[in-house]
Nucleic acid binder design. Structure first.
Length: 194
DNA sequence: CCAGAGATCCAT
DNA sequence: TGGATCTCTGGC
């Protein structure tokens, strides 16, 4: 039977961020580049939740950069990090509540694109896509292709690279598909007994 | 205006 | 473990 392909709606993202994050695992990120379509199954994400969350950029307040997170859910928040890499987020929750989900890894036809910077490089995502609506079905969007996650398939972990956030760094707000937990590069290292 | 840090990645 | 590389932010 043919599985449905449903574009994730604004209502989908207008929910508690941690729930949105977890449920995005196994969904698809679809990107159109020069008329060609790339679709990647979402493997890893992180939730950034409100101005109290010191790991969330919006904890600095409402600035030019964080403004987008205070806006409509389902919109892209793309920023440049370390002067050379981009990170893709999708804004969540109601307007005025600043939150987003960072997309950290996807699987494109069996190839693991592991890391938010690599992901953006592969899908040609840069700040030109900042504040773009991700629910229209053009350029870039999220899709439910009907695959249900099995119980225990999604692992929870602390978030990466946010040690400065104190106790907030320990929140289990990173979600990763367990079957793709081992990076390709590390496989033979493990086989060799480490 | 200036300095420091950063939701990363890669080579050493 | 450290360098690349530049935007954002806060302090002066």
């Amino acid at each position: 039977m043919k599985s449905k392909r449903k574009i994730l709606s604004r209502d989908y993202f207008n929910r508690p961020t941690v729930r949105v994050a977890r449920s995005l695992i196994g969904k698809y990120l679809v990107r159109v580049i020069d008329g060609r379509t790339l679709a990647g199954k979402i493997i890893e994400v992180e939730a950034y939740v409100g101005s109290e969350d010191r790991a969330c950029h919006a904890s600095k307040g409402r600035t030019k950069r964080t403004e987008v997170m205070f806006g409509s859910p389902g919109v892209a928040y793309v920023y440049l990090i370390y002067g050379m890499y981009h990170c893709l987020n999708v804004v969540t929750e109601r307007e005025e509540f600043p939150a987003a989900v960072l997309i950290r890894a996807i699987d494109i036809d069996g190839e693991l694109i592991d890391g938010p910077g690599r992901l953006c490089r592969t899908l040609q995502i840069d700040r030109a896509l900042n504040q773009v609506d991700l629910t229209t079905g053009e350029f870039i969007w999220f899709e439910d292709r009907g695959a249900a996650m099995k119980r225990g398939a999604v692992g929870t972990h602390h978030r990466i690279g946010v040690d400065y956030a104190g106790q907030w760094a320990k929140k289990p707000w990173r979600f990763r598909l367990r079957t793709a937990t081992v990076p390709t590069r590390a496989r033979h290292r493990i086989k060799g007994g480490v």
